[in-house]
């Protein structure tokens, strides 16, 4: 054997070789990594490939390479453009409101009081409940024109009952999303509050800070990175929200609440239009990557040094 002989199995192909060698040397990590690659990365590459083809499952004989045709199509398709706008408005509204509400929850339950454990438990429950059941509960116990508590209250004040979801579909979805995600924000913000030691707050108080000044100048600046983290994570999950929309509005009325994931679902399973759906999927992934990049940076700084 030559002294500089590369390991026979993987050494031949430059990049793959390095990767293969690494995999070979890290038998404890390799299985997990390979599962993730096979189940998530390989399909994504296929999605990219599909997006370049004209392909409808109902007319397989028409399948043909289409270049960037699908992308041109979807960017001329008002349904897609509308769904992008819908996705963005859901995400921005729901994330900002969830952050605000989550912050309020966290500030409310941070200090000790009678029954704090129960209150916290109640507050996080919306996040634990299966999303479709949470949406179902809202649909029938709160927003329903007939059984909903909201209309009961309206009637008590002599008003006319309203079909809330029909009249205010976007607001309804956002309300449910905030209800579901505010606890998520609260959990992370609470951890942030706990990391702030009491001495700092007490010192501020000794220096004459009132509750408002204490919150404004001590607590909020400390919470900055926790707010960022929860906001970024929340954006990534909320932009992909499917379950709540499926249960609450089915994307309607009309296409009022059809976001990109829901539109992709419809394109695949109602119109069987693989090519266009794949192109949309690629677009939403690229959009997410921007947010993910920021998130990874933040996580990296939270984690400190590695390697």
């Amino acid at each position: 054997m030559k002294p500089d002989a590369k390991p026979a199995l993987f050494g031949r192909i430059p990049i793959l070789g390095r990767f293969g060698l690494w995999i070979w040397r890290n038998p404890l990590i390799a299985p997990a990594l390979l599962v993730v690659i096979v189940v998530t990365q390989a399909p994504f590459i296929l999605t990219v490939i599909y997006s370049l083809f004209r392909w409808n499952l109902q007319r397989p004989e028409n399948t043909a390479f289409n270049g960037f045709g699908n992308y041109l199509d979807i960017f001329r398709d008002s349904r897609f453009l509308d769904s992008v706008v819908t996705s963005l408005s859901f995400t921005v509204a729901a994330v900002l409101l969830s952050l605000l509400v989550g912050l309020v929850y966290a500030l409310l339950v941070h200090d000790r009081f009678f029954g704090r454990g129960i209150v916290r438990t109640l507050l996080i429950t919306p996040f634990l409940i299966m999303p479709i059941i949470g949406a179902l509960a809202w649909k029938y116990t709160v927003l329903s024109p007939i059984f909903g508590i909201l209309n009961w209250i309206v009637r008590q004040f002599g008003g006319t009952p309203i079909d809330w979801i029909g009249m205010y579909p976007v607001a309804s979805v956002v309300a449910v999303l905030v209800w579901r995600w505010a606890p998520f924000m609260m959990i992370i913000i609470l951890a942030g509050l706990q990391a702030l030691n009491d001495d700092q707050r007490e010192a501020a108080r000794m220096d004459g800070a009132g509750p408002w000044a204490e919150t404004r100048f001590i607590v909020l600046p400390h919470l900055k990175k926790y707010l960022q983290l929860s906001g970024l994570l929340g954006s990534i999950f909320i932009v992909n929200e499917f379950d709540v929309i499926f249960m609450l509005t089915q994307g309607g009325p009309g296409t009022a609440t059809t976001n990109v994931p829901f539109l992709i679902y419809q394109s695949v399973f109602y119109s069987f239009d693989i090519g266009h759906a794949a192109a949309m999927a690629v677009v939403i992934v690229l959009g997410t990557i921007v947010v993910v990049t920021y998130l990874l940076k933040l996580l990296g700084s939270l984690m400190g040094d590695l390697d």
Partner: peptide, 22 residues
């Protein structure tokens, strides 16, 4: 380590609809 960790977690953030078709 950093590459592996960040690769792993970025797959979790990949939208499910991005891979649902294949």
């Amino acid at each position: 380590k950093r590459n592996v960790l960040f690769f792993l977690i970025s797959t979790r953030f990949l939208p499910v609809v991005g891979v649902i078709i294949p």
